[in-house]
């Protein structure tokens, strides 16, 4: 009698100690939440990716033709790999055409700033001789100082700079053609940004000029394939902004 009671007790204990009895709620909840999150991710991720791409595409016409540009453009996304030796860097390049004429390229470049990485869009004209404008996509520089690089007035000094000489940051008033006024109190941020731009321009000029993306009239064979023209293609209707 005593013996059987004892075994029953220990059996009960073993059942109670079983991890399934202890943790069934945790297991159930994590499975349930996991499925729910997967569903949300599946639903929202195309929209998030589109947001990211649209942010760039919306800037392309303004960067290339000025803010009042309202020409319907065809924008084709390409990636350009450049860099000497072991360090290869890949840039997203957005080639823009109005009709059959190339109006320029927008290069997305990333590099180290003072606080964190800086993402910048650089507009280049069709002949790759001039910077037509820059736009800061993302930065985490010091608010009130380095973060002023997003200021349109400061960014405007990049417009029209020639690409044959690297840009140089100066603390006093910029005189020479390739000089950029530093942001007051944020010389390192200004220098970092210029270094990113110089590097990117240097890296993409060669591959682009060597005819990776044809400027001028499009050859007929390329016209047929039309890269980037699918159902999700952002190929038209981006000229309004």
């Amino acid at each position: 009698m005593n013996d059987s009671l004892h075994t029953e007790n220990s059996g009960n204990k073993r059942v109670k100690k079983n991890f399934l009895v202890q943790a069934w709620l945790v297991i159930f909840l994590s499975t349930f939440f996991g499925v729910a999150l997967a569903a949300i991710q599946l639903t929202l991720s195309p929209k998030i990716a589109a947001n990211r791409l649209n942010e760039t595409l919306n800037k392309v016409p303004g960067l290339l033709l000025g803010d009042q540009a309202a020409v319907p453009m065809k924008i084709i996304k390409r990636s350009v790999t450049a860099g000497a030796g072991g360090v290869k860097k890949t840039y997203s390049v957005f080639a823009a055409r109005v009709g059959s004429r190339s109006v320029g390229y927008v290069v997305k470049a990333t590099g180290q700033g003072y606080a964190d990485k800086i993402d910048v869009l650089i507009g280049l004209d069709g002949a790759l001789n001039k910077i037509t404008g820059i736009f800061i996509l993302g930065q985490k520089e010091t608010p009130g100082l380095g973060a002023k690089m997003v200021d349109p007035a400061w960014r405007a000094q990049f417009t029209g700079k020639l690409t044959d000489k690297p840009l140089k940051v100066v603390k006093t008033k910029a005189h020479a053609e390739n000089e950029i006024d530093a942001i007051t109190g944020a010389t390192i941020s200004s220098r970092s940004l210029c270094a990113i731009i110089n590097q990117a321009v240097h890296d993409v000029r060669g591959p682009l000029a060597s005819g990776l993306i044809p400027s001028g009239p499009i050859p007929s064979d390329l016209n047929k394939t039309k890269p980037g023209k699918g159902p999700n293609s952002p190929s038209n209707g981006h000229g309004s902004k």
């Binding site: 939440f33 729910a36 999150l37 949300i40 991710q41 929202l44 991720s45 929209k47 998030i48 947001n51 990211r52 942010e55």
Partner: peptide, 15 residues
């Protein structure tokens, strides 16, 4: 779970 939902939601609708 709910924080992840908010995070994804903001990224999709208030980028």
């Amino acid at each position: 779970t709910f924080v992840t939902i908010v995070d994804r939601f903001l990224a999709a609708y208030m980028y």
